[in-house]
C-alpha cells in the first residue's frame, strides 16, 4: 500500500472541500472495497478523508411515502430494517444475497453503489486494463470472460458492476442525493453510471469530491411483493452470474405494472425497460414472459466465454415472473 494521510472530517462541507481540492484524495466510509484496492495498489490515494461517522446512519420516512436511506447505513442495517423488509423485500433480499455478514457490517449503502468491478484484470496491476490505466487494453477480450458483461459493454471495457443492492434500487427508480463542490443535487440510480464507451476509467457521473449522502426509495406499492433472485457459482458469498429484481401486478389476467432489473450482465444495474414495455397490458403468460425476456436480450453482445449468460438471464427472468404471477 502507498503511504497516505488520514483525516477524520468534522463536517460534510469541509470533507467535500478536502477531497475536491486534491485529485489524489478519496473519501473513506466502510472501506471494504477501497482498502482492498489500496492493498493491491489498484488505487493509490494520498489523502483519505474518513466520512463514515459523518454521513447519516438512519432510515427516515419521506413525506409522500417512500424512505430516505442515509448513505452511512450499513448493508445489514438496510436489509434488516422492518420497513424495507415489508415495503421493498427485493432490496432486503438483494443486499442479503451479496457478500458475507461480516462484509455487510462494514459496507455502507453509499459505498455499495460505488464499489468497483471485480474484473480480475482490473484487480491485477500487472495486466493491461482500460479502466485502471486508460489507453492500455482490455485484457478480458482475449481472456477470462465468465463474469463479464453481455449488455452495454464496449471494445474498451467489458467489466460488470457487482452490486446486488443497486439492481433492486434500479428497479425501484431510487434517487441518489449528493453534496459536491457545486452544492447538492439528485441523480436517479438509473443515470448514475457512465457507459464504458465514454471512457471506462470513470464509473459514474459523480464529480471528484462529490459525496453520496442518501438514497431515496420512492413509494412503489407493487414493490411489497417484489423479489430478487441471484444465480451464482456457489450457493452463498459469490458475485452474480445473473440476477433479477422484479415486481409484478396482474389484474384480469393481464400485466398492469411490472419492474425488472438485471444484475451481473452490464457495467451497471440494468433496468430491463424493453421487457417491461413488452409486457404492459399483455396477458401474464409464460409465452409472453419469454418473449419479453428475449426482446430485452436481443441487444446482448456476449463474448465467447459468457454466451451462456444470455439463456441464463432469459430463464431467470421467466422463472421470476412466473413466481410473481403465481403469488399475485
Amino acid at each position: 500500500m502507498k503511504p497516505f494521510v488520514y483525516e477524520r472530517a468534522t463536517d460534510v462541507s469541509s470533507a467535500v472541500a478536502a477531497v475536491a481540492g486534491r485529485p489524489d484524495a478519496s473519501f473513506l466510509a466502510g472501506g471494504s472495497n477501497l482498502v482492498d484496492l489500496m492493498k493491491m495498489e489498484v488505487v493509490k490515494p494520498e489523502l483519505l478523508v474518513d466520512i463514515r461517522h459523518l454521513i447519516s446512519h438512519t432510515i427516515e420516512e419521506l413525506p409522500g411515502g417512500g424512505l430516505r436511506i442515509g448513505a452511512g447505513v450499513s448493508n445489514n442495517e438496510l436489509a434488516a430494517d422492518r420497513r424495507v423488509r415489508r415495503r421493498y423485500p427485493m432490496v432486503s433480499q438483494a443486499v442479503l444475497a451479496g457478500a458475507s455478514f461480516q462484509l455487510r457490517n462494514l459496507a455502507t449503502v453509499g459505498g455499495n453503489f460505488l464499489q468497483r468491478t471485480r474484473c480480475p484484470y482490473f484487480r491485477d496491476v500487472s495486466m493491461p486494463c482500460n479502466k485502471r490505466e486508460p489507453g492500455t487494453a482490455c485484457s478480458a477480450l482475449e481472456g477470462h470472460q465468465r463474469d463479464m458483461a453481455i449488455l452495454g459493454a464496449s471494445e474498451s471495457c467489458v467489466a460488470m458492476h457487482p452490486s446486488d443492492m443497486g439492481v433492486a434500487m434500479a428497479a425501484l427508480d431510487a434517487v441518489i442525493r449528493t453534496v459536491g463542490p457545486d452544492g447538492e443535487r439528485t441523480i436517479p440510480v438509473n443515470e448514475l453510471y457512465r457507459s464504458p464507451a465514454d471512457g471506462p476509467e470513470r464509473d459514474t457521473v459523480l464529480k471528484h469530491g462529490e459525496l453520496i449522502t442518501a438514497v431515496d426509495l420512492p413509494d412503489v406499492p407493487v414493490a411489497a411483493t417484489s423479489r430478487y433472485r441471484k444465480v451464482r457459482d456457489r450457493a452463498s458469498y459469490a458475485f452474480a452470474l445473473v440476477s433479477v429484481a422484479a415486481a409484478l401486478r396482474v389484474r384480469g389476467g393481464a400485466v398492469r405494472e411490472v419492474r425488472i432489473a438485471l444484475g451481473g450482465v452490464a457495467h451497471k444495474p440494468w433496468r430491463a425497460r424493453t421487457a417491461e414495455r413488452h409486457l404492459i397490458g399483455r396477458p401474464a403468460t409464460e409465452a409472453n414472459f419469454r418473449a419479453a425476456a428475449e426482446a430485452e436480450l436481443a441487444a446482448a453482445e456476449p463474448l465467447k466465454g459468457n454466451a451462456f449468460k444470455v439463456p441464463l438471464a432469459r430463464n431467470t427472468i421467466v422463472s421470476m415472473l412466473r413466481t410473481l404471477a403465481e403469488e399475485a
Binding site: S74, N105, L106
Partner: peptide, 19 residues
C-alpha cells in the same frame, strides 16, 4: 480475520486501524 468491533463482526483485514 473476523473480530467484533463495537459489537459487530467485521473483516479486520479490510479495516484501517486509524479509522
Amino acid at each position: 480475520c473476523t473480530v467484533m468491533v463495537d459489537g459487530l463482526r467485521v473483516n479486520s483485514c479490510l479495516t484501517l486501524a486509524v479509522a
